[in-house]
């Protein structure tokens, strides 16, 4: 048996390798979305602040602070997703962010508001677009959660094999 690996171990390594490529692909896609969204918001912070205000959720003192902080946060999330050691935190941040976006959009839709979320570029207020962005948020949350859980699983597997 010297020099030959057991077949079961080889299959597990192949499966893990495929999953790792899927995680990498999903991470790259989500990273691209968030880096683009963050850079786009930095171009017109005033417009983005007006979009936040349109949700009628936050008091005036917090609206501009969110408009200042969210674009760098989105860019940072995207960049963190690119690195194998930082991917976990990036994925968790994206998951948290998409929950907040989803809740805000759902709340606006339930209250009968028609607005431009400003999530992925500036546009005219539109309810169909709000629904579309709600679906996109759900998809991004699912992707981020997948990446995070896979990363946690790999970490646990590494810890177990190290013992």
């Amino acid at each position: 048996m010297v020099g030959r690996r057991p077949a079961r171990l080889h299959r597990e390594r192949t499966l893990n390798s495929r999953r790792d490529y899927i995680v990498l692909g999903v991470s790259l896609a989500v990273a691209a979305v968030f880096i683009y969204a963050g850079v786009d918001k930095l171009r017109d912070p005033l417009q983005f602040a007006d979009s936040i205000a349109a949700f009628a959720i936050l008091p005036a003192i917090l609206i501009n602070l969110l408009a200042f902080g969210l674009p760098p946060f989105e860019i940072a999330c995207g960049l963190l997703l690119l690195g194998p050691r930082t991917r976990r935190v990036g994925a968790l941040a994206v998951a948290a962010l998409t929950i907040i976006f989803f809740t805000a959009l759902a709340s606006a839709l339930l209250r009968g508001l028609t607005l431009d979320c400003g999530c992925f570029g500036v546009g005219a207020p539109s309810r169909p677009r709000m629904w579309f962005e709600l679906v996109v948020d759900a998809a991004l949350f699912s992707a981020a959660l997948f990446v995070y859980l896979r990363s946690i699983t790999r970490l646990s597997e590494s810890a177990v094999s190290a013992k």
Binding site: A67, F73, L80
Partner: peptide, 24 residues
């Protein structure tokens, strides 16, 4: 990360040619 992003955002706003006020 959120705290660092807010700090970065405030610095970016401050260095902008048309900075926004802190209160909307």
């Amino acid at each position: 990360l959120a705290v660092a992003s807010l700090a970065a955002g405030l610095m970016i706003n401050r260095s902008s040619s048309a900075p926004l006020p802190v209160v909307y």
